[in-house]
């Protein structure tokens, strides 16, 4: 322990403690700005990784184009691509085409004005459920805007907005609570995050339902529009099971979300609703 009292070591310990103390006493707004600025240090890497993905995709497309011109290549005496390779490429393009067609087909079915954004990151800590999207205030993203999946199911809301990227807090996080109802019976309730951590991100709990509500597995749950945070009738999920609360005052239900929060690649931010 004698080493502890060496001067340089005192300075090192003091610097850490001072930093932590300053960060704790710093006003909330200044801390948020600092956090955003430090997070901005990762923008070059995000840019590189996004560009890399795009480049890989375009290489794939180029490969597809080359394989289309294979008769010419054959005529020039080059070896043709094997049939299985071509088949793989056709399958890949077919799935991409299907995904894009689905997105395009769904666009008119969503009654709100939306912006399609790409998911570029997630909260590194397992006790929070947040995703990072590739648009920020420069593209009109605002605090608290609802976020839905590409197919139109509820995903969460915008919780932090930077100039180039934003954070979305997912349904199931303790910081994302909102009013929802059983579509069939119109019983009001509030979706809360699971009481306990679960690795299954698709399960949340709906509480404060009246005791006389009739719940059956498979019933649809939608947002109620109360509170103004989310517009009415965004599909949330379906009832799995239900029970009366411990104090007997209300009914609780387990809901399976429609959106697969583990595999979000593109989401829609509601810009006008």
């Amino acid at each position: 322990m004698k080493r502890f009292f060496y001067k340089s070591q005192q300075t090192a310990v003091g610097a850490v403690l001072l930093t932590v103390f300053l960060l704790l006493v710093m006003p909330e707004s200044a801390r948020a700005r600092l956090k955003s600025a430090i997070g901005g240090l990762f923008l070059p890497l995000i840019g590189i990784s996004t560009t890399g993905q795009v480049a890989l995709e375009s290489i794939g497309q180029l490969g597809a184009t080359n394989s289309e011109s294979s008769p010419t290549n054959q005529a020039l005496g080059q070896a043709p691509a094997s049939l299985s390779e071509l088949q793989d490429e056709v399958d890949r393009l077919r799935s991409v085409n299907k995904h894009l067609s689905e997105l395009l087909a769904l666009e008119p079915l969503i009654p709100w004005e939306t912006k399609l954004v790409r998911v570029v990151g997630r909260d590194p800590f397992n006790w929070w459920r947040r995703i990072k999207i590739n648009l920020g205030s420069n593209k009109g993203i605002r605090f608290n805007q609802p976020v839905i999946s590409a197919k139109g199911n509820l995903v969460g809301r915008v919780s932090e907005v930077g100039s180039l990227t934003s954070w979305v807090v997912l349904v199931g996080d303790p910081n994302c609570r909102f009013s929802a109802l059983i579509k069939e019976s119109r019983s009001q309730g509030g979706i809360v995050s699971p009481r306990q951590y679960s690795s299954d991100l698709r399960t949340v709990e709906l509480t404060y339902l009246p005791n006389d509500v009739e719940l059956r597995p498979g019933q649809a749950v939608v947002t109620s529009g109360l509170g103004g945070g989310f517009p009415k009738e965004i599909p949330v999920g379906q009832v799995v099971d239900s029970w009366v609360s411990k104090d007997g005052l209300y009914v609780e239900a387990r809901i399976k979300l429609h959106a697969n929060l583990n595999q979000l690649e593109t989401v829609r931010v509601l810009t006008r609703y």
């Binding site: 801390r31 600092l34 929070w128 947040r130 954070w167 996080d173």
Partner: peptide, 8 residues
């Protein structure tokens, strides 16, 4: 900075 934890 990349999480919902308080900074620091």
């Amino acid at each position: 900075s990349l999480s919902a934890n308080p900074l620091g």
